[in-house]
Design a protein around this nucleic acid. Sequence first.
DNA 1: CGGGTTTGACCAGCGC
DNA 2: GCGCTGGTCAAACCCG
Length: 332
Amino acid sequence: MNSDNQKLRGMLTQVNNNYNSLHLQFVEFMQQQENSKSDRSEKELSRTKRIGREESPESHGLASKKVPKLNPYQTPEATMRKARVSIRAISEAPMISDGCQWRKYGQKMAKGNPCPRAYYRCTMAVGCPVRKQVQRCAEDKTILITSYEGTHSHPLPQAAMAMASTTSAAANMLLCGSTTGADGLLNTTFPARTILPYSSNIATISASAPIPTVTLDLTQPPNSLQQFQRTSPAQFQVPSPLPTPPIAQVFGSKFSGLQMSQDIETALPSQAEHHKSFTDTLSAATAAITADPNFTVALAAAITSIIGGTHPNISDNTTNDNSNVNASSSIQ
DNA sequence: CGGGTTTGACCAGCGC
DNA sequence: GCGCTGGTCAAACCCG
């Protein structure tokens, strides 16, 4: 077990380091693309302007209508608002418990869905920009779809860390490539809807939506690898006859980055070398995980212990935090 | 009485 | 330009 833990930590550290490196390179790449574009989409500007208005702390609750104009690009929070993390989970409860305090501020009937969509604000701190939408799936009312926007501007309780880390990491993963807007590079470099490997279809990206969205589908059985292989045969596949272990959820967000890197690789060969080591590392890690059930169990136990403990130090970066491991179990 | 919920109104974006 | 839709506001209401 100790050796497994050491093996795990070493591997995750390496993966994380490579991911951070890749992330920086990817952001640089995106910034280059951004600079090459002479003008920004007018629609995107107007959309974010509206979001900026609503994001004012003064707009919280029953506060004054008077809202100062904010530059939507001046704060990380504002940028983060452009991404949405959607979680599909089977739940009979009207709202999944994610450890945060929410205040309902609206409800609307959405087109094509008999179930109303509820809007919530985080009330754990005044001015926290995080909002979420809760709606039941029209096809299967046992499925609760919860969408998160923004990042918390306050410390989170332990119970909320898993979900927050998941949404933050997923949003950040997505946003690191969305600076050009949903109609920009993403749609040309990446598939409009990318099914992520290693995740049992748990995580998907919809970059074609008005707001780029990461969907973490926790309603799928863990052995739906075949579906992935069918839907995206040309993409990197797990070389394992074993059903994808639940632990794959741990890497849902990180492996999304892998997906991006591989798409970049095809679209931009000059960048390929920069991502190759990361891909190789992940490939090795995945092979180990999927080929060795014992290691999978050890990995799950180790990460669970890390999350459950006080040292989520696999990564000290919140946005790259692997502590989203418990996100699925905590809300099921 | 304070805080949360409900619900109709309002606003902005988008498609036709 | 107009209507539809999504998202938010805020007064009224409810509850502990």
